[in-house]
Amino acid sequence: MSDDIAYPVFRTPDLALALSTARRLMEFGQREDSDVCVYAELHSVAEVQRVAKELLEGWFRGQEEYGEFDGALLEEQPALVVGVKGSGLPFDPAAYDGRLPVQCELNYLPVGSIEDAFTAAIGPNRGWINWEMLRWPDAPEAGFNGESKHAEVSLLINTPTRELDEYADDHTVLVHVRSVCVDGREIREPYAHWLAEQVGLTVIGSGHRW
């Protein structure tokens, strides 16, 4: 079993520029079966309902208290807790009591099918786009074999962390590679630098565990 580590390679307050830059990096490793996942956290009823109107096929799921539904059948639980598409979200604001923040996600979609709609809908909320199933090429001059298991590109929106636990007024593009740590040093970090350089970018910070 192995893990990946993601290095920031671009940061900007311009979301359109961040998206186009992430796409340029993603396209460097894109394959026919590459896919994309998106995720956001929505902290108000108004934002949940607004985003749902724009992402009707999004999967929305609210919070629950620990042990709140222990022993309850699935059909006895609120639809918002189980998860519901945007088109089926409740209208009554009372249905969201204790359920915020609401998570919104769409997973394993074809590349290019959701990114524009998602970035148009996300507004001030925190979230991310993750392109998966890429293939990074060999870099023999740098001494690295290519890889696919951990070849991904991420765009963090309105946050500097994947956990979405901090707000930022800018957006960060990250390149993923396999994590190989020896004596506290990531020995494949130079590969991340090489990948970034192939599309005119550069690593601008330390790696994020993913």
Rank of each mutant, 00 (worst) to 15 (best):
D3G: 11
Y7M: 08
Y7H: 03
P8K: 06
P8C: 09
V9E: 09
R11L: 08
P13R: 13
D14N: 14
A16P: 00
A18I: 07
A18W: 02
A22L: 07
R23P: 00
E27W: 05
F28A: 15
F28I: 08
G29H: 04
S34N: 08
D35E: 08
V36D: 05
V38W: 09
V38C: 15
A40M: 11
A40K: 10
L42V: 14
S44Q: 13
E47Q: 14
E47F: 06
Q49M: 14
R50T: 10
A52F: 06
L56M: 08
E57M: 12
G58I: 07
G58F: 06
G62V: 12
E64L: 11
E64W: 07
E65H: 05
Y66S: 13
Y66H: 08
Y66D: 11
Y66M: 12
G67N: 12
E68G: 03
F69Y: 15
L74D: 09
L74W: 12
E75S: 10
Q77R: 15
P78C: 03
A79N: 02
V82D: 01
G83A: 02
G83S: 05
G83F: 07
K85E: 11
G86T: 04
G88F: 03
L89M: 05
F91M: 10
Y96N: 02
D97M: 07
R99Q: 03
R99N: 04
L100K: 03
L100W: 02
Q103D: 07
Q103K: 10
C104W: 02
C104V: 15
E105C: 12
L109R: 14
G112S: 09
G112F: 04
S113L: 09
S113N: 08
S113I: 14
E115C: 11
D116Y: 07
D116V: 15
D116T: 15
A117T: 13
A117D: 15
F118A: 05
T119S: 05
A121E: 01
P124T: 09
I129D: 00
N130P: 00
N130F: 02
N130D: 05
W131I: 03
E132W: 05
L134K: 00
R135G: 08
E141P: 00
A142C: 01
G143A: 06
G143D: 04
N145G: 04
E147T: 04
S148N: 05
K149D: 06
L155G: 01
L155H: 02
L156Q: 01
P160A: 11
L164W: 01
D165K: 08
D165Y: 01
E166A: 13
A168D: 07
V173A: 00
L174W: 00
V175C: 01
D183H: 13
G184L: 08
R185I: 15
I187R: 13
E189N: 13
Y191T: 07
A192F: 04
H193N: 06
H193D: 09
H193L: 06
W194G: 06
L195F: 02
L195A: 13
E197H: 09
Q198I: 09
V199L: 13
G200Q: 11
T202P: 02
T202A: 13
T202N: 11
V203K: 01
I204T: 12
I204S: 03
G205I: 10
G205C: 07
S206G: 11
R209P: 06
W210K: 10
W210V: 15
W210C: 14
